[in-house]
């Protein structure tokens, strides 16, 4: 999966510029769709993983592994498939930047 992660990152570097031109808050808005379960800005109040401040590559690798099916899950394998690799990378960027 390392190669796929690297590719996703490369795609994002390209896509991010464009996305930012469209809406500077795209990463924030995408990450907010995770907050119902993982807490506002990725700070869980318990029972779910906190995502805030986790290393960006670790978060992205995890989501990509859920998406590919490499990492088994009850629900995250179904949810991660709903986002493009570029969107997952923006989400990882956002949570990694949270204190």
């Amino acid at each position: 999966m390392k190669l796929k992660l690297a590719l996703a990152t490369a795609c994002v570097l390209g896509a991010t510029g464009l996305a930012n031109a469209q809406d500077p808050n795209l990463a924030r808005n995408l990450a907010a769709t995770c907050a119902n379960c993982h807490g506002t800005n990725g700070k869980s109040v318990g029972g779910m993983d906190s995502l805030a401040g986790e290393p960006r590559d670790k978060l992205l690798q995890k989501m990509m592994d859920f998406k590919s099916g490499d990492k088994p899950a009850t629900i995250m394998h179904q949810i991660s498939k709903g986002y493009s690799d570029e969107q997952l990378a923006l989400i990882a960027d956002y949570f990694a930047a949270q204190k």
């Binding site: 119902n36 379960c37 993982h38 506002t40 869980s44 109040v45 318990g46 029972g47 779910m48 629900i75």
Partner: peptide, 11 residues
């Protein structure tokens, strides 16, 4: 997870 969902979404 269901109960944790409730606590997190209410917060």
């Amino acid at each position: 997870y269901a109960l944790a969902w409730a606590q997190n979404i209410w917060a």
